[in-house]
Design a binder for these strands. Structure first.
Lengths: 173, 173
DNA sequence: TATAACATGTAACAAGTTACATGATTTC
DNA sequence: GAAATCATGTAACTTGTTACATGTTATA
């Protein structure tokens, strides 16, 4: 019963069209690197698992005398499973998404170092924000853009929160 | 080389005082259930690993004829390791925190169902917000409160974002 | 002729979850 | 006398990463 995000991601990509593993991995690497960190070997393994669970069917094909490809197609069972994963995931807030344990332990660093580290974090967040604003939405799918917009929301929220926290620190100095 | 959040959490709790496993697990279950989902068995295993890595030392003690306890104390090496995990984690934004893949696939649900599911999500987020606002900060450590405040920031950001998205959907109906 | 792109894996390991085991003691 | 609390684990399983293996074909 693997009910995880990687499964949902791969099923979701196969909802659009049948694809072979390499093709999926390329797409993820080129376009979804900010959304998932799944490794290629993992993707191949998950595809195998999904085939064993009959969520996808496999056929092999060959173009010229290139290496054999295994083309995966989502099955009706797979579509059902995908939709049920999607519904559950959308309806429930995953608290795991919200945690960053390190903030619990700020007291173990000096105020100066805390400020310096938060400054670094802020810079990396603002850089990410700037970069994303300069490269407008790719355009593959309005919903993908939604997901990226949601990430932007969190980046902005954290950027502003860090500024507030630092202002407070400065006020108490 | 376990450089994960669970290690940091346990080391962080041991920074405050030496504790035995059960004690730590109780504390986590009672106070940190929104911050981590670590299971008790996992905590015991991580404590063992940390002992093997000399991040903590162990001594056994017994109170009356209760079961033996294994009391863990952080070592100087452990303190160094903790601080280095903390610094790295603070300075870098973890993109994994931002991802919710399901939003990429909204197009596979009808507009009506999407709205209904987002409504559910919104309700659970708002309920969580209300509950947290009604139970003011526990008070064990100003930094723990900071971590919870940060979670609040994300909950608020997502609540508002979902409202915007739904308003847009309604506008396009 | 080297190296990048194409294409799929395997093996060894690390980390985490689940369900279960154990046995005393305190509380209802 | 039953159930909860105290206290620590083990065994089996799932998931994921890392590093490596393999062999072809197009490109520089």
């Amino acid at each position: 019963m693997p009910a995880n995000e990687r499964t949902m991601l791969l099923l979701g990509l196969l909802m659009a069209q049948s694809q072979h593993g390499y093709q999926i991995n390329e797409f993820i690497e080129r376009n979804l690197s900010t959304v998932t960190s799944m490794k290629k070997s993992t993707a191949y393994a998950v595809l195998d698992r999904m085939a064993a669970a009959s969520y996808v069917s496999v056929r092999t094909e060959q173009e010229g005398n290139r290496p054999l490809r295994k083309v995966y197609s989502i099955t009706p069972t797979g579509e059902q499973h995908f939709l049920s994963l999607l519904r559950k995931s959308l309806a429930t807030e995953d608290l795991g998404v919200l945690g960053n344990i390190s903030f619990m332990f700020l007291d173990y660093l000096s105020r100066d170092e805390t400020v310096a580290l938060l400054e670094l974090r802020l810079q990396s967040i603002d850089a990410e924000l700037a970069q994303r604003r300069s490269v407008p939405p790719h355009g593959f799918g309005h919903a993908v853009d939604l997901a990226l917009e949601r990430q932007m929301t969190f980046l902005e929220a954290e950027s502003q929160w860090i500024r507030r926290v630092m202002a407070r620190q400065a006020g108490m100095a």
